[in-house]
Amino acid sequence: MKTLPVFIIALLVALFAFTTQAGELKPYNGKPLPDFSLQDLKGKKHSLSDYKGKVVLLNFWATWCPPCVKEMPSMQRLQDKYQDQDFEILAVNMGEDSTTIEIFLQKMSVNFPVLLDSDGAILKQWKIFAFPTTFLIDKEGNITYALFGGLEWDSPEAVVVVEELIQQ
């Protein structure tokens, strides 16, 4: 894929101001949040720190949350777009059992890791008060953007932001 020069990307980021019809991707101004380890549906452990060196889209969601469900196909499209690049999506499910999630994923085919925060421990550490909540984490492990609400993740506005982080 031919990529834009970084300065052009930065300009586009500023011009679009991170807004979409659904939510607003804002620069993150909070404190650093802790590393964590969670299992996926197959029992494999994933630590956030395992993904250092990649841009991570960390999404907190639930099957009963309509905006969460609505944005998930666009997350998969974003994953597909950057599948050969330093980019990963981690979707942390909030407190639901494996069966409920498995049934949901039969209708919503995704190939990024779905992690289980069964007791809400990570939700509390990361101060999640609404679903969906998404963080964009750069290759150094720094939280750069945060969003409360759904988004079309393959919209031009969102892609510009993700592209900039990947190219850093």
């Binding site: 993150y28 101004n29 909070g30 404190k31 949040l33 990361w126 101060k127 999640i128 008060f129 609404a130 909540t133 998404t134 963080f135 939280i143 945060a146 969003l147 409360f148």
Partner: peptide, 12 residues
Amino acid sequence: LHASEPEPGVDL
């Protein structure tokens, strides 16, 4: 009972 709209990653 929160004072303002919550922000991701920030104490309520």
